[in-house]
Design a binder for these strands. Sequence first.
DNA 1: AGCACGCCGACT
DNA 2: GTCGGCGTGCTC
Length: 646
Amino acid sequence: MGIELLPMGASFCAVVIPRTPLSCLTYRFHPEVTGELAPGDIVRVPLRKRQTLGVVWEIQKGCPDIDRAEVKDIAGVVKRMVVPSELLQLVRWVADYYCAALGEVMGFVLPRGLSKELLAGKEEGMEVAPVAASASVRLRASPLWQGKLPPELIQAIEEKRFGVWGDFGGAGEIPDSVIEFIQRATDSATAGASAIVMMPEARIATCLPFLRDAFGDVVIEYHHRLTPSEVRRVWRLIKQSEKSVVVGVRSVVWAPVENLRGIVVLEEHSPGFKEERKPRFNARDVAIARAKFASCPVLLSDLTPTLETWHNGKRGKFQLVGVSQAAGERYRFQPMRENVFVVDMRLHRDEVLSPRLLTELKRARERGKVALCYINRKGVSRFVVCRTCGTVLRCPDCDVPGVLMGDGTVICRYCGLTKPAPDFCPNCQGVDFQFRAPGVDMVKRKLKECGLWDEGNKVIVGTKKVLAAPFPEDLGVVGIINFDTEFALPDFRAREEAFRLLRDVLFRARTRRARVVIQTYRPDDVVINSALEGDVAGFLDSELKVRKETGFPPYRRLVLLTLSGKGLERVKEVIDGVRKALSKVDNVEILGPLLLRKRQATAAIIIKLPTNIMPGKVLMPVLTEVGGGKRGDVRVKIDVDPREVI
DNA sequence: AGCACGCCGACT
DNA sequence: GTCGGCGTGCTC
């Protein structure tokens, strides 16, 4: 028989292979044999000396700029129309934004091991346990759930229109507005309708029962705690479900729902949405992108909005529920001053526990109540604060607190500016500096000295964890030992986070009728005052101003480049190359390099980009130019929108 | 990611 | 002499 009359009409297509660091590869196919192919089809392709599965990315007219002889034939079609165009668009967006290869990103769309199952032909006739009999959305007709959403949002859900709504100040496990949003998004009489609900991991356990109660069996968990085979099972289940409410943390934004009508993000500020492995995406931002491609609204819910969301609200990109669109100046909550004590530690210089805190601890003890003492971090915080006037030493360029180094110099972790520690406070000429904050052990020792730490005591001393857990029912007082460490941390987001933390503590303490003692050297700081006044807009506006002046998000975009190699010389060479290449791009600024580990020859730079350019589009060519020429002896780690810059 | 190619140590 | 260590490099 030999070769049959094969086709003058060979076609070409680009294929993305999941879980490879490749973008896309060109393959040949013959429509007479395979039928026409389309983006999203899964095909079997030869790669080196093996065969793998790939996703058809696009059909190409003719063979592109690659030697025709190198192009191989597609080995077969495995399954058609697996990845909808909405997800293909999302993959492209994430790759462009986070500077990742298409193959890396596609790994999130097709679960690990799915390829093997499909290749083994396991797929055909494979039935997934059907969604329980009553697959329709089961709703309690509680009047509580109605009328929480603005009419425009309801319209956007019904008309399948993209938009982002921020709903802030909500209380309870799941705010009523969120329940109503999901209800409306999944309540389609005609066709299937699904919603994705994202939340920090810590909330899943408490929220799921509420969601199950409200929406019954259509609630599906899709997150990293599942084993690989469970992920595959759930993936199939979601794909074949007409209606679903899919719940998870990060990977859930990639859930294969094909009739997406809305996405909810609970606690939009949560750092848990940032994926810290390879394509370092922020699931909150990917959710917004997905909603755009899927044409559906997003509801961001939190107690305090992020500065990004506030900024987007003010310029009309997002809608802020319950906020006057004009300026947001009416965005005020109830003052929280009742039962709250702000202690000016400048009057108690050498104390760890102020007289007020001691009084409140004793009071709680007398009433048999629990006392919480919160310390920012175990060990030391190395910022420098003037004990006379409360001034925190900051970098003159970045307005970020400086960090005291072992050799007595103070360094800015953003731009690397290093100066000797000052003899006088630049503000008040005082000479009394505090270089470190008290740790857990010191507080416990002081409590012992005051007779407040003994058998069966009800004082809990700790760091972040004591605030992460729900407050005990019989809480009497929360003491914040040194609140200044909170917003003097060397992070441009420190003040925002301190404000959020304080609001959260005040809010939760009030539900327990507990008192709050805030010890600080800066009792008049906007962070404290606006939190106590419930003046969210006031704080966010003042903070936006600082960010604008110093050129930080949301006005500029940050990209953290960590480079490591055999020698520091080579690393510096590459950094210079990056700097030179980027000097051609307008409005790009580079901070650093700061040396992270001299021994391991690791250095980092922070690139500030204008917000209107896709980081990947600018950085990809730069990195191939720099790394491509010389060899890959310097490893470059790219983190777009890094959570923190060490 | 995989999987091959490649150039140096202890072994049937 | 060969088996095999995992350091570099490429995948249409």
